[in-house]
Nucleic acid binder design. Structure first.
Lengths: 304, 304
DNA sequence: ATGCCCTGTTCGTTTTTTCGCAACGCTCCG
DNA sequence: CGGAGCGTTGCGAAAAAACGAACAGGGCAT
């Protein structure tokens, strides 16, 4: 829901996103001239240019960034209020926006969402699966209420709600020789070809660190930014892939793929982090989701 | 400054304040019909009535209160952003809104404001002197950035920034017999007629508590909600009035009135409290003012 | 250097939204 | 029961926003 009276603000947002008035106008289904006038008028009212006029388009000025941040925060807060008003009307409605790493897309999030939807049918979800960088960005632009990230570097404008230590797992075909063991060691895995997450993914940094310190030479046959890709790849060969525990069918056998925890002291255990933008008031449904997530993950150390 | 595009929101605010569309319309210099339509349109867009239609006027519904709070918060935050944008332009401009008890109006606030204005001429101030209740209300309605109150009961939605222990003083004419002593006792004061702050003022509760526990009978000749009134009253007779230290010419002689600290164990020393609304981002000038206030008051225990 | 493309912007016109004015229906109170 | 509030509603006028086409200017490849 977006209020009619806030139209102009979403115009600014659109221009900032599109990087040019003409593209933004196309996205908004209005003419560039109309959009241009609204931008100019607003700038006149503020007494400041919000955009630098570049020959290739428009880029936000410092003032523009300030203003846009305010606009987005304000709209996010309106959504929260609107949710609470719906709540008053008896309808337990609302939307929770989540930005999460791929690991969560495998089973944790789908199952949790299903459970929550059965419990409160009025709540809707927006889930965006993306890399760490994008999760942080989504929080900053108020597109996501909550972010769930693995191996994220702390940022000053984020608040960590809670963290869970995650162990790295080796992912392999169910009939793979390694699947016979309860846990595996890295040097066992290195006997086989490796299918690795690429650098945009959280687990990769850990593996890099290990290889750097170790003398073992990995046989890298596949690199991908999609865990689904990796998982489906190892199903029908003897390659081994890696993923944090929460995203794997560890101790299970699903679609011919299974996973085993890696027993290795050398790994610094990076936590899976649930975070929000500092100072934000989260909508009720988001708080409820957070509680369920905490419960489902077996409660880590809270940092709120 | 108020943005053109937020007009409708201030309409809602005006209606809530005035209690009726016709009165609000008058205050806004528009016709009731125009105002009414904006309210109805907004309600339709939200899918909820914001006001209960009463025969005598309109009162906010629960949803309306929620929405209005959002609107006020949003406008206050816009003011902050606007201030920061002005700051970017090089102009050190901005406005600090303060709601304070009468004690501050005597010397602390005027002197502090003068000093601050000399240091940064661009900063303007809005100071509202009012009773404790009104200070809290002003914070809640975003009319004030900071509140300075004596003897305020803690509220869940306020954050105490810092506190300063204040001793109660007896205020009297400079030629009063008690003025010869360095400090006075309550039973000394009771030898004379008393000019008391009334119940809307902070110090009164303390005095009430004392009289309740004591057997001494006060001779109450004047009761007022204005310390200025009380001060000017005792100047030309032998009556004694009371005020917290920060608001008195203690150990000084000003306009024929002076003050002496009361030495009495029985008084629980209520602190002078500087507070803000919980979760608010204060504008830069307000933060600067806060720092100066802290310094001027000799720094109490911070609770931020 | 010279077109060419894409940019933001302006002008005159059309369409949509908002406003003012007068009137209506209602409830409460004297 | 009449008067004084109140919110609300049609209708014409006024204001605001959008449209469509044309203009000015900066980058880029030819």
């Amino acid at each position: 829901m977006s209020l009619q009276y806030l139209k102009v603000f979403s115009y600014i947002d659109a221009v900032a996103r599109a990087g040019s008035i003409r593209k933004a106008a196309e996205a908004l289904f209005i003419t560039p001239s109309a959009l241009d006038r609204r931008v100019l008028d607003l700038e006149a009212e503020l007494g400041t240019e919000l955009f630098e006029r570049h020959a290739r388009g428009m880029r936000l000025t410092a003032a523009g960034e300030l203003f846009l941040d305010h606009v987005r925060a304000q709209r996010a807060d309106f959504e929260r209020i609107h949710g609470e008003i719906e709540h008053l009307k008896g309808l337990r409605r609302g939307t929770v926006s989540i930005a999460a790493s791929q690991a969560l897309a495998y089973s944790v999030l789908p199952e949790l969402l299903n459970r929550l939807r059965r419990a409160n049918p009025g709540i809707n979800f927006k889930v965006r699966i993306c890399d760490r960088q994008a999760v942080v960005t989504a929080l900053r632009t108020f597109e996501a209420d909550l972010g769930v990230v693995y191996n994220v570097q702390p940022a000053a404008d984020l608040t960590t709600l809670f963290q869970i230590e995650q162990r790295l797992c080796a992912v392999m075909a169910a009939r793979h020789p390694l699947a016979a063991q309860e846990t595996v060691k890295m040097r066992d895995c290195l006997q086989y070809p490796l299918a690795m997450p690429d650098t945009s993914l959280g687990g990769r940094a850990l593996l890099e660190g290990f290889f750097a310190r170790s003398s073992l030479q990995p046989n890298l046959v596949l690199e991908s930014n999609s865990f689904e890709m990796l998982r489906n790849f190892v199903r029908s060969n003897d390659a081994v892939s890696f993923q944090i525990q929460v995203g794997t069918p560890v101790a299970r056998n699903q679609d011919g793929v299974t996973a085993r925890v890696i027993e290795e002291r050398a790994f610094p255990r990076q936590p899976l982090t649930v975070a929000q933008l500092k100072g934000r008031h989260l909508p009720q449904p988001a708080l409820r989701f957070l509680a369920s997530l905490r419960e489902a993950m077996g409660g880590g150390a809270s940092t709120a």
